[in-house]
């Protein structure tokens, strides 16, 4: 009799799918005090409703997840999956401490945030956005193929991270925790993504940054433009130098990017009036 009841209360793939869709509201309603904790609670609803019987147990479990939580919304799927596995074990076997659920969450939210922020938001998003931009520029601001590709790829990445996080987090929780905390997985992945990003930024430099010097020289009868001379030597040289200058000012001189954005606009206006940019 008891065996049968346990089987009924086990989490199925269907429950994990419900849990997956609940995570669509993960970051909605996050406030400065508890950040994503309310999202964590609603994500756990399908799991907690399934594994606990009495109302007191359910309330106890929900309260547990109202503790402060802040991570990257998609990478957090792994944490939700692991928490689901732990809640199930606590409800059915009662052989883990309830506090350990929050301990695992607090231990993982930092590394997961670092992974999600640096790979999804720090690398993939700017890279695919940059590719979309250069496709739009190449089409003469006519084609919307680039933006559509951007949305499709980024949505797919987000959904895959969340799907594998939730499902693998549930089935192989502890192995994944070990992999994240012990090996250099986080460092390796960010390093590889960073390498690819450098290659692509080098590629963006010519298309996304335009600096032109309108000087012209007269040699007897022919007019030689300074810019075409420069392009003959090394196309896109000024763009690359400007990126280098901005990088230097940001890292070595600690000047804020917002200031530099305004400085660029100001330089453009001054350059136009003084005739050295155009």
């Amino acid at each position: 009799m008891e065996q049968k009841e346990t089987a009924v209360k086990r989490i199925t793939r269907k429950d994990l799918w419900k849990c997956f869709w609940s995570q669509m509201f993960f970051e909605l309603g996050n406030g400065a005090l508890k950040e994503e904790a309310p999202g964590f609670v609603t994500s756990m609803v399908p799991i907690i409703e399934k594994v606990y019987d009495s109302k007191e147990d359910k309330i106890e479990a929900y309260k547990r997840h109202t503790e402060y939580y802040l991570s990257e919304g998609r990478a957090a799927g792994l944490n939700v999956g692991i928490a689901a596995a732990m809640e199930e074990r606590l409800a059915l076997q009662r052989d883990i401490e309830p506090e350990s659920i929050n301990a695992v969450k607090s231990a993982l939210m930092g590394p997961l945030a670092a992974l999600g922020d640096s790979i999804i938001h720090g690398t993939f998003r700017p890279l695919f956005a940059g590719i979309a931009c250069s496709l739009v520029i190449a089409s003469g601001y006519k084609s919307v193929f680039g933006p559509i590709m951007f949305v499709v790829i980024m949505t797919a990445i987000g959904f895959l991270v969340r799907y594998y996080g939730t499902f693998l987090g549930y089935s192989k929780g502890t192995e994944i925790i070990d992999a994240i905390q012990n090996s250099g997985l986080v460092r390796n992945m960010t390093h590889l993504a960073g390498t690819a990003a450098y290659l692509l930024v080098g590629g963006f430099s010519v298309g996304l940054v335009t600096v032109k010097i309108p000087w012209e020289f007269k040699f007897e009868e022919t007019v030689v433009s300074f810019q075409s001379m420069l392009d003959g030597l090394c196309p896109g040289l000024l763009s690359m130098l400007l990126i280098g200058l901005m990088y230097f000012l940001m890292t070595k001189k600690k000047i804020s990017p917002t200031f530099l954005l305004f400085a660029c606009l100001a330089l453009g206006i001054i350059g136009k009036y003084a005739g050295f940019l155009g």
Binding site: V201, T210, K212, P257, I269, G278
Partner: peptide
């Protein structure tokens, strides 16, 4: 026009 010229250079800040 000058703002337009500056906007062309803004990309350098983003990439940096």
């Amino acid at each position: 026009d000058g703002i337009g010229v500056g906007a062309g250079m803004i990309g350098a800040v983003g990439l940096a």
